[in-house]
Design a protein around this nucleic acid. Structure first.
Ligand SMILES: [Mn+2]
Ligand SMILES: [Mn+2]
Ligand SMILES: [Zn+2]
Ligand SMILES: [Zn+2]
Lengths: 143, 143
DNA sequence: AACATTTTTGCAACATAGTTTCAAATACAA
DNA sequence: TTGTATTTGAAACTATGTTGCAAAAATGTT
């Protein structure tokens, strides 16, 4: 666990590290990501913060993404979700090589940071810049 | 290449095979999938058929999907795309194990039917039912 | 070919998500 | 504390997803 003070400190440190101004909205949204350890959709976040304007939230997520704080968690559903970047992501330069798991029962999506996936044979003539690996099924808690 | 007659025959055969009535809309939409050999979004299709009601198109795509004629091509973009099923997919029982490639230049998404991906280690306690593998980059034509 | 039955279509209406513009509020550094 | 740049929230608009319903079309049967 983490005390409130520790959370606040962590939030401030992360925002500064990624060149983001420390605003009320950003602190709240980032806190939610740190507390819930899963990928979050816009509506997930709205349910976990005091009222925030949806346009502001929309822009907050884009700026987090642009600045390497969160990444899109592709999970094969039509809902767009974001998750905290694990480490060294920078402005315009995300570096992820982990799979995402989407549970069809609890509808949660999580980053499988431990599950690296192997390089597979790329088709000749194609230049591959990003790869995503998605798993869907039932998570350990929902068995 | 394929003659118009051959195309028409193929369309009829496919629709019948998948228990779908042979309607004007369905024939047109399926033709587009057969001609363009790539994953198509709703707007892609609208651009390639005479005017079709968007709700009808929406429902046409769902019924094609339900009946194993097309599948969702997860490509990591926020645009939903569908592609023809290669073979043996049935009602409620799609069987795909191929990767999808999305080109950031021409924005096309294609099925890499030849590129099977390896089973990767599933996290303990998780039951995996579906997996998707997505590649993004620059396609051979856009190099 | 005409009919009866079931499915599909097109329209209206509504829901939700994405996006731009702009003025007021806020953050930050001088 | 003050000036500047950024962020926020509201309005307005666009795109996409979804249901209900009556008219039209498809199919199987006389
Ligand atoms: Mn992730
Ligand atoms: Mn495919
Ligand atoms: Zn679950
Ligand atoms: Zn291309």
């Amino acid at each position: 666990m983490r005390t409130d003070i520790e959370l606040e400190t962590e939030v401030m440190t992360l925002l500064k590290k990624h060149d983001l101004r420390l605003t009320q909205v950003r602190k709240e949204v980032l806190s939610v990501f740190l507390i819930k350890e899963q990928a979050l959709s816009q509506s997930d976040i709205e349910e976990n913060v005091g009222q925030i304007d949806r346009i502001t939230l929309y822009r907050t997520l884009r700026s987090f993404e642009d600045n390497g704080l969160i990444h899109r968690a592709i999970d094969g559903t039509d809902k767009l979700r974001f998750a905290l970047c694990v480490d060294l992501c920078e402005k315009e330069n995300h570096k992820h090589n982990h799979a995402h798991f989407h549970c069809e029962k609890c509808t949660k999506t999580i980053c499988l940071n431990g599950v690296e996936f192997p390089k597979i044979i790329h088709p000749a003539g194609f230049k591959v810049k990003e790869t995503y690996y998605v798993m869907q099924g039932v998570c350990s808690k929902c068995q």
